[in-house]
Structures are given as structure tokens and as C-alpha cells.
Design a protein around this nucleic acid. Sequence first.
DNA 1: TTTGTTGTAACCTTTTTGATTACAACGTTA
DNA 2: TAACGTTGTAATCAAAAAGGTTACAACAAA
Lengths: 141, 141
Amino acid sequence: MQLSSRFTVAVHTLLVIHVFGKTEKVTSEFIAASVNVNPVVIRRTLQSLKAAGMVGVKAGSGGASIVKDLHDISLLDVYRAAGCVEGELFHFHETPNPDCPVGHNIHAVLDAHLADAQAAMENELKKVTLADLVAELPAKA
Amino acid sequence: MQLSSRFTVAVHTLLVIHVFGKTEKVTSEFIAASVNVNPVVIRRTLQSLKAAGMVGVKAGSGGASIVKDLHDISLLDVYRAAGCVEGELFHFHETPNPDCPVGHNIHAVLDAHLADAQAAMENELKKVTLADLVAELPAKA
DNA sequence: TTTGTTGTAACCTTTTTGATTACAACGTTA
DNA sequence: TAACGTTGTAATCAAAAAGGTTACAACAAA
């Protein structure tokens, strides 16, 4: 089981807007051609990124642009904006038996550790900005 | 989107076996009553834990037992044994456009960072052993 | 042999993801 | 203002996966 691709699609989307934004009108169809998904998926992604204050989208005339400094957008920001994980990363079985000492305390002993693990992952995503990714782009081309 | 509950169910299962193993025959039905899932789900969990060398299960007569020191079983071990994530945690859209500079390089610029984030999470799980959890159990009861 | 349990296949339901169609709303331009 | 291309968004669909459930052969012990 893997997390939704919304996150990587969102990162890809932002990079396309950055790279082509100066020279082309970057429409949902244009981005979709690079990511290789349906344009509607990109439009939904753009709405999420817009709600997070990262991009502007021109209804009618068309075209997306980045409205925030790439140094100020971390992978964690994109991850959160994409909304592929709501709240807790780990999933608990519902209603463990409260009459059993283990079932009664399973959350008490596990929750904090799982939260730590999730925080460690998110903290790592926070270290990387889109500006870092852009810097790596040409070098690997 | 959350990870499968297989992981937390597996932890719960191991704790039940530990707590009741001395005094009762811990069957899949017994564990299922604490976790509050179907006994077959527990049997499948037990097979995974058995394959990982953590438990022994008596076919026929019934009952599961732990066959490894709890100090030597980390949450990461259980996480891996439960198999709720195969390989990569993050999911990529398939076949990004290789003719686009972004599509062509998206893996090159993202893979390492995502692997770092996943490793940070797993590393945190590695720090906690089942013995730690057991130590926390009575204190919170 | 009887009883209770495991091991496992098979099937079903539910949920979720992403694909897709459809279309009204919108901006630009001719 | 009319035509055109694009966005915003709802609705629907198919595919995948998770967990639930039934079923039953294999097995161990009394």
C-alpha cells in the first residue's frame, strides 16, 4: 500500500509551471501532457495548490503561474496541500476491545510513537524546497 | 489516505500474546476478540509474524506464542513483517512524459528525497521495541 | 474418533483512486 | 458582442485494495 500519487503529481505540476511559465501559457492540458494524466486531474491539483497560496490560475483565458517564492515552498507544504494524507499516517483498527487490558491501552502505548515516526518523515520533507529541486533539474538533464 | 491497519493489528496481536500467553491458550479467536476483527484476519497476521520468526503457531491444538526476545523486535520489524508497505512509501504517476525536461527528470530530482523521508520514518520505528511498549502498558492501565 | 483449532482459498462488500465525460462560467480577442 | 479556448466542478465509471466472511481440509490432542 502506497500513498496517493497526488503528492508527486503536485510537485511535478509546480515544476512544469516554473520551467515553462516564462515562455508558454501553461494550461492544465499542457501540464497533463508532461505528467501523463487526465487534464481534469491537473485542474483538481491546481485548485489544491491555489487554495494553499502557491499558484494562481486564470479562469477563462487559461494558464497557471507560481505566486510564491520557490525557496518558501517545501516538499512538506506541497504534501500537505496535495492532501494525500489527512491527519494520521497510520491507521488503527476501529474500536479495540475496551474490556481487554491490551485493547484498552493500545492507543496509549502506540499513538505517541507513531506520531513520532510520522513527524520524522514530514520533517525530512520540510528540509527540501522546490528551489532545491529546480537547482537539481538542469544538472541531471 | 492512510496505511493499512495491518501494522497496528500486528502490534496489538503480539501484545495480546505476550500478556496472556502465560495463563491462557491464545487462539486467533481470543486475539480477534481483543482487536475486534475477524479471526481470519488474525490468522493471516499470525502467518506473517510467523514467517518473520516472531511467533510460533500450533496448528491443530491451537495457540500462538512469541519465540523472540521482545527487546529484539522493533516496531520497524513488525511494520515490515505486516507488509502494509511494499518497497516505496510514496507513489509515482506512471510513465511521465520522457520528451519533457520535467517529466524526464522528475524521478532523478525526487526519488532520493522521498527515500530520505521514508527512511526517517522507518528509523523512528526502529527505535521502539515491543519491550518498550510492554513497559508502558501497566503504567497506563 | 471426536473436538477444537489452524491454514488457506474463495468470494463479497466497501472504499478509494484516478479516468473520463459533460457543461456552465469565465476572459480574451477578433 | 460573438466566438473561442480554458477553467471549475459535478457526476459517473472502472479498477484496485482492504477487510469481512464463509467454507473446509489438515492437524493435534484428549
